[in-house]
Design a protein around this nucleic acid. Sequence first.
DNA 1: TTAATAGTAAACCATATGGTTTACTATATC
DNA 2: GATATAGTAAACCATATGGTTTACTATTAA
Lengths: 124, 124
Amino acid sequence: MLSSTATEPRFQEEKLDLVFRALGDRTRRRLLARLTTGSAMVTELAKPFDMSLPAVGKHLRVLENAGLITRTVNGRVHRCALNALPLKTVDDWLQHYQRFWGETLDALSDYVQRDNGGKPRKRS
Amino acid sequence: MLSSTATEPRFQEEKLDLVFRALGDRTRRRLLARLTTGSAMVTELAKPFDMSLPAVGKHLRVLENAGLITRTVNGRVHRCALNALPLKTVDDWLQHYQRFWGETLDALSDYVQRDNGGKPRKRS
DNA sequence: TTAATAGTAAACCATATGGTTTACTATATC
DNA sequence: GATATAGTAAACCATATGGTTTACTATTAA
């Protein structure tokens, strides 16, 4: 077995860098949202955007490098599909912080609803 | 009421831009992780990093602009604290995709464990 | 009051990012 | 074979990002 595995911290950190940065752009999030309705070729994906085809192509490349989409080339058509697995990695990362936004919400709730007998609100 | 509210789509999109981009850097994620153990002043936060103080200061500014930390100035000491609420926004955004990584995992599971009678695996 | 500490501001630099336009390649179609 | 279509590649540009160093401000302490 190689010294590097998919679960090794550094590997995961690099992946998170790519995924978070890929998600940090509205155009790319719109592309992902579009792909939840099914795979599509590049020109189809580019149509709704007020932007050149190469620009959309670059965004798709960023998403691909982050592992968020897969591409199958068939003739001259590149068909893109959503790959949500990296989002699970993000979700896992987020879970470490869930209790903190819970705490914040509870504190806010306690502050706003003092007539609640001071009981913490149930977590959603 | 003003024409712009915290839940208006554009507002949320801008926020997601800031938060995702803030999270797309390892140094900043380490800073957040540190802050889960409690608030700290800037020099304390900077200590573990092989990086100048102004550099860390900039990272903290990015986190602050994304709403991920709050800062209380007391004399010359700036005390930073985690604010995880924007991470809940991220979590909400992620939930729209949860069923897709579920599907992918199921498909993988089906492929790997053909001896399973073809039944979909239970969601975690 | 002098000196040390906490931190930002500003100027600077290299590289990354997000867009453009203008080729160019490869596949379909007439 | 000629032409249209799908898409990338490459060159270019403006701005953003992540780091540096060198001031500078403000507060605390000797």
